[in-house]
């Protein structure tokens, strides 16, 4: 549990951070995954750039009809944000389910999604929210969708030298209900499976539905087949069950000590049905 020697910089500006990153430094944004790996020497970065020192990455604000969340907003800040609670409760609910209090105080949304742990909680919600990710390099900035951001286990669209600047999520109208349901792995607090649901109804029928799944496979995804199956339906328990049964379609489920692939698939279906049901019950 003794890390190798490394350099640490707390940059004063984003440009300084980008400059350091372009010369091979590794970003530190909470360190809830990186620091334990360093203590075990599974990770041996030579230089850490602490992004949490940058005040201009730490914000949660509304602009242009969307919500902008700076990369270093902590899970606790997201969980307790009055703005998000009102305008994007799916994100506050998801943040509140992460790890434990200590992790939520230290960990950040940017650090979490850039690390792209296949069992992290945010990716399910961000997939369901069709979030946008603003990636900043030394020269340019680009925006990618959630579908393109999460590439594989621990792999994202971030290129070397780029940092995630902010995450943008939409503001749903009052007819939208959301829910995040998770089976917790008791040792780590990670999701064995987590399902985020976002549902709108119109005239007694589902007019819009987005489902984000995490933990089942190497990266979070939107269960589009299930979404299609539910759209236009009155969302009877049967409709929900039938749609939920499709969330694992075409997915290569992972297996580990804590849950076999079969059990994971089963849990995804169960939690999808529950998330949809709860989301609908929350429609104002």
């Amino acid at each position: 549990m003794i890390a190798q020697k490394f350099e640490y910089t707390a940059p004063k500006s984003l440009d300084e951070a980008l400059h350091l990153l372009s010369s091979g430094a590794k970003p530190l944004a909470g360190g809830m995954s990186l620091i334990p790996m360093m203590k075990l020497r599974l990770a041996v970065p030579e230089h850490l750039v602490d992004l949490r020192a940058l005040k201009d990455l730490n914000y949660i604000r509304e602009a242009g009809g969307q919500l902008h969340i700076g990369a270093t907003a902590s899970h606790y800040e997201i969980e307790s944000s009055a703005l998000l609670r009102q305008k994007c409760p799916l994100l506050t609910e998801t943040a509140a389910s992460i790890g434990d209090v200590q992790v939520r105080n230290m960990g950040t949304i940017g650090g979490s999604v850039a690390h792209a742990d296949p069992a992290a909680d945010y990716p399910a919600a961000l997939a369901a929210l069709e979030a946008k990710f603003v990636l900043k390099g030394a020269k340019a900035e680009r925006t990618v969708s959630a579908a393109d951001f999460f590439v594989d286990a621990f792999s994202t669209a971030l290129q070397p030298g780029e940092i995630l600047r902010e995450v943008i999520v939409p503001i749903d109208d009052a007819r939208t209900g959301t829910s995040y349901k998770k089976m917790v792995q008791p040792a780590s607090g990670f999701a064995i499976v987590g399902v985020a649901a976002r549902v709108r109804q119109n005239a007694g029928k589902v007019s819009f539905v987005r489902l984000g799944i995490t933990g089942l496979s190497n990266h979070a995804y939107r269960a589009t087949a299930a979404e299609k199956a539910l759209e236009g339906k009155p969302a009877t328990p049967n409709d929900i069950q039938n749609a939920a049964a499709l969330v694992t379609q075409g997915v290569d489920a992972n297996s580990d000590l804590h849950a076999s692939a079969d059990y994971r698939r089963h849990l995804a279906v169960v939690h999808a049905a529950r998330a949809i049901g709860t989301a609908i019950s929350r429609i104002a």
């Binding site: 334990p36 075990l40 434990d100 792995q185 008791p186 040792a187 780590s188 990670f190 000590l257 804590h258």
Partner: peptide
Amino acid sequence: ITGELTDYALPRAHL
């Protein structure tokens, strides 16, 4: 293979 607290599930206060 349950050699760390991420895989060895110790009872936690909230459980």
